[in-house]
Amino acid sequence: MTINKKTVEHLAKLSRLRFNDNELLAFTKSLDDIFEYAKSLQQVNTEGIEPSAHAIPLQNVFKKDEIITYKNIDKLFENAPDVENHSFKVPRILTN
């Protein structure tokens, strides 16, 4: 058993997800299966092997420091669930 219910509850909190008990159970089971399977990785000898963060090595890609004004800001707000004073409105942050 690699993954238990508590772990999944913690992961849910970190990733802003909320589950009922059945979901918790189901995800615990499937994650456990997956990580049991992934154990095979531990057998691979990776001593002194550089990790690859990218498929292909590229480096030093930059943009010029110039201002280009975006013309469709209003369009961005058309997708917003709640807007006030040209800002994105969210419910109260702290509750106590």
């Binding site: 006030e84 004073n85 800002s87 409105k89 969210v90 419910p91 109260r92 942050i93 702290l94 106590n96």
Partner: peptide, 12 residues
């Protein structure tokens, strides 16, 4: 202060 705020506005 954030504690008594009834809602917040995000300016990016």
């Amino acid at each position: 202060n954030i504690k008594d705020a009834s809602y917040s506005l995000s300016d990016l």
